[in-house]
Design a protein around this nucleic acid. Structure first.
Lengths: 352, 352
DNA sequence: CAAAAAAATGTGACCGTTCACATTTTGCTG
DNA sequence: CAGCAAAATGTGAACGGTCACATTTTTTTG
């Protein structure tokens, strides 16, 4: 009944026999060892091609001390809503793409683990995954990149790791976008369009990025030396609801802003939503810029001008660094990737 | 320099020594063999807990004929745009969630492979993945679920597989939403609101779902016995651009529809976009329903009424069936999962 | 209650790689 | 061109599970 007998794939010894060499020589060819003569290498390669040999990843892990696996830890909370509410985790597919391409290029595989944000068993879950998979590297994405317990566990275990979207850490590989500079640039672009009343909706304080973005906004505003209104800095938590509330407060403010910088796309969507309700036209009466540039933004009406967070590029870089693994995880490495301001249709000159 | 020595995880033999039994007994406990006395089982379990033992997945694969791996084949084309254009693959994260939860529950892991749609090397890529990973099951997602070459390869290899979003196949496990019924229901809901001029924007003909949806639309319209205008059936290919073009044609049509059923969210977004341009208010002058209900839809203005495609549930079911593997892949199994019509704000009574 | 059957437990080989080390071949030096 | 170092290739063990089968214990049966 169940599955019929699996076709037997050729082994390294089949290739060795076919090429008339020892199995170890085949291994050397696979692993690009420099100490194989060209003639032999070619003979082996021919045999590999003829037999369609592909090394078995499980056996490689058994024999050597590498697994050719990169483990990506993502937030379950961001994804779980898909079940009911239909909230997407735009990180996952970009992670997948950026990280996976890099892995594939190097004969690695990427495996995901979804860990609940506030789960006290998170360490246990990671620990089990390490034992079971013995990955060559682990990528931590927000908010897990802020969880030092996980990092400590990885250090104790001797597994190299990279954090995405977190910096100022003195261990592991830390890959970030320059949030401060990005927020500054976005704010400046609004100032350059003649806006003087520029508001900011902050992200959840749990994320380091939130304070960096706020700092960038403040520095640009301070430089502009225009009068700053306290109401223009609104709290938020990255949710649609919090964005809508912030927008309400701003629209009711006695000094209503003509431009709003929102700390993520979802809150920017909420701003557009509320603007429509208030009969405020975008971009004629109000300009909006958001952070992240997740895939959905180009379908908003009007399409959002946004700071693109290079998630795929960050994941790719994380994978690449882990695969190279010339790294001493005990001391931290900081890598900053460039941001990009994508101008679409929610920004325009300040109203007269 | 490189990674420091990895902490040695306990092995099955460490547990055996700790519990004072043979390694095979430990193996039996792990695998829930019924033939272990309760007293012994408990002694072993205690030792497992004390040592924090977790079986090494690679070793399990080497010894036995299972890998505890499910391979999910996704479309690279849908994802590759992330790099440049920022187009999301809403399948991936839902697949990930639905399938992965099920895998995790059973001690399995899910691995993704991104395969280009039109790539002639697709079979080679799958073949390599099979050799390398030896997965216990493979999940094919659109458009790969329509590629019989891949299915044949899997059958020849003896690897069970499930197709998502494809039916009428006589091999493998086939999991679908009832597209015809869903399209019928959506169309009917518009007719029930008093609409008589109901248009349809079709999806790419490469997908079986496209024709099913068209059929459902036609059957509902036929039943309504209202006069049907040829212009109301517009071609499309699931892209924003094709949706915008279809909308343009419909809005210029001499018998402009008061309701439009679009075959996916992206084309529905395009309809909203064009409606705004034409100054057509939604839902007062035009009702819109879309297919898929991908995460972004609730941020459209106004939020889209949509048929939810239960992607996560389908992935979960696929994984579940493959893990149970009581299946004879030679003969096909058809599984239909329920759809759901999510009413949001793009639908309303027909204008007078 | 002895003999046979069934259930519980144990033993050693094996999966397909890489590793450590042994051996052979090649290249270099004086 | 002997003698030795370095490069190229080969050999067998080991990784950590499961499998097939052997052995021991318990239960059933006539």
């Amino acid at each position: 009944m169940a599955s019929q007998s699996r076709t037997k794939s050729p082994t390294i010894r089949d290739v060795a026999a076919e090429a008339g060499v020892s199995h170890q020589t085949v291994s050397r060819v696979i692993n690009k060892s420099p100490n194989v003569k060209v003639a032999l290498r070619q003979k082996v390669q021919t045999a590999i091609d003829r037999l369609g040999y592909v090394p078995n990843i499980a056996a490689r892990r058994m024999g050597g001390n590498r697994s050719y696996l990169i483990l990506a830890i993502n937030d379950r909370a961001r994804t779980i809503d898909n079940w009911g509410v239909g909230r997407g985790n735009d990180w996952v597919d970009q992670m997948l793409f950026g990280g996976m391409m890099e892995c594939e290029k190097n004969g690695f595989r990427m495996i995901f683990d979804l860990v609940e944000t506030e789960n006290p068993a998170a360490e246990k879950q990671l620990s089990a995954a390490l034992s079971s998979l013995r990955p060559d590297g682990v990528i931590l994405t927000p908010p897990h990149s802020e969880n030092q317990h996980l990092a400590d566990l990885l250090i104790a275990n001797g597994t190299p790791f990279a954090r995405i979207g977190s910096s100022n850490k003195n261990d592991g590989i830390n890959i970030v976008m320059d949030d401060r500079a990005a927020a500054h640039a976005a704010t400046q672009s609004l100032l350059d369009l003649g806006h003087r009343k520029v508001a900011f909706i902050a992200g959840s304080p749990d994320y380091l990025a939130s304070s960096s973005r706020l700092a960038g906004y403040r520095s640009a505003m301070a430089q502009a030396s225009s009068s700053i209104h306290a109401d223009w800095e609104q709290p938020g938590d990255f949710s649609f609801a919090s964005g809508a509330e912030a927008a309400d407060r701003l629209f009711h403010s006695e000094s209503r802003p003509t431009a709003i910088l929102a700390s993520n796309d979802e809150m920017a969507f909420a701003v557009l939503h509320q603007a429509a309700k208030f009969g405020i036209s975008v971009p004629e009466e109000l300009s909006v810029i958001s952070f992240d540039d997740t895939p959905g933004v180009r379908f908003s009406v009007p399409p959002l001008t946004a700071i693109r967070q290079p998630i795929a590029a960050m994941a790719r870089r994380a994978a690449s660094e882990l695969i190279d693994r010339k790294i001493d995880i005990q001391k931290g490495i900081q890598i900053t990737l460039p941001f990009e301001l994508i101008t679409r249709s929610t920004t325009g000159s300040a109203p007269q």
